[in-house]
Amino acid sequence: MEVHSFLHSDTETYTHVLVDAKNKQCAVIDPVLDFDAKSGHTNTADVDTVIEFVREHDWELVYIIETHAHADHLSGAIHLKETLGGQLVMGCHITEVQKIFKQIFNFDTSFRTDASQFDILTDEGDTLALGDITITAMHVPGHTPADMAYIAADDEKTVVFVGDTLFAPDVGTARCDFPGGDAKTLYHSIQRLLALDEDTVMYLCHDYPSKGRKHCPTTSVAAQKLGNIHVKDGINEAEFVQMRERRDATLAMPRLIIPSVQVNIDAGHLPQPEDNGVRYLKVPINALT
């Protein structure tokens, strides 16, 4: 098993490439589409770097895995799929998120809330085969109802892709104030991750390093239990919920939440062009608190 991580510097998002080199197969987790909010322009430069990397090694892209519907960047899954193929994977509880945001954005009846935009829907305990690697889905709601972690294991090692549920120990944990989020639920999801073997490497979706530390795509269960500033050993559920809710009340909405969510709940598809050939995103006024 190999994992190669690519940092999208604008949103501090990690895209990971999980590889079975012997069988020349790979999966890409959480690809990013560049988006300039000031101009409304998209760009594929960063995801093209991942595409070129996969091509250079002559790997077959089997899966494009989204850990959840991101609120801080647009997904690059559609460009990746159109270029390299692969099946688009999302947790089945994305239907709950689609229903919530269909109302917020007042999408018409053509917007599907059955998750049929995705190729494979995973639920707790479902497995995907990537060569000799088994990828097991773990439902870890709290940040959103649909968050999934993915545990990848072969004969050599086990790693887990945690999405936004956990960050590096000096950064803490995901916010829970988006529609459908819940701090108590997140606490219990995190405890399930921390019950994995202590030497399990955790691959992060984001890193927002404290001053003096460089970006890093990984941490470990042991490091989280020892030093996560929000949820290390000794912090109970009540303490965590109080901290998380107080902190969330002080946070601004993510810079790209409005374009990101409406694109990502539709599997990364941009809106259809209107009769003038231009695509438009909607901005709900006073709808997000």
Rank of each mutant, 00 (worst) to 15 (best):
H4V: 14
S5E: 07
T11R: 03
E12S: 13
T15Q: 02
V17L: 09
V17C: 11
A21I: 08
K22V: 09
K24F: 07
K24M: 11
A27Y: 01
V28C: 12
V47L: 08
T49V: 07
E52T: 12
I65W: 03
E66F: 04
T67Q: 05
A69N: 13
A69C: 15
I78Q: 13
K81F: 04
G85S: 07
H93N: 15
I94V: 11
E96A: 10
E96T: 10
Q98I: 04
K99L: 15
K102R: 15
F105K: 07
F105G: 04
T109S: 15
R112Y: 11
D114S: 07
Q117M: 12
L121S: 00
D123E: 15
T127F: 12
D132P: 02
T136H: 02
P141R: 03
P141H: 02
P145L: 05
D147A: 13
D147M: 14
Y150T: 07
I151S: 07
D154W: 09
D164M: 15
F167K: 01
P169Y: 04
G172H: 05
A183S: 14
L196F: 01
T200A: 12
C205P: 02
H215C: 12
T219Y: 02
S220A: 14
V231S: 05
G234H: 06
Q242V: 09
M243T: 06
R244N: 09
R246L: 13
R247V: 12
R247G: 12
L251M: 15
I257D: 01
I257H: 12
V263S: 11
N264P: 09
I265N: 13
A267M: 08
G268P: 05
P271A: 03
P273V: 06
D275P: 01
A287T: 06
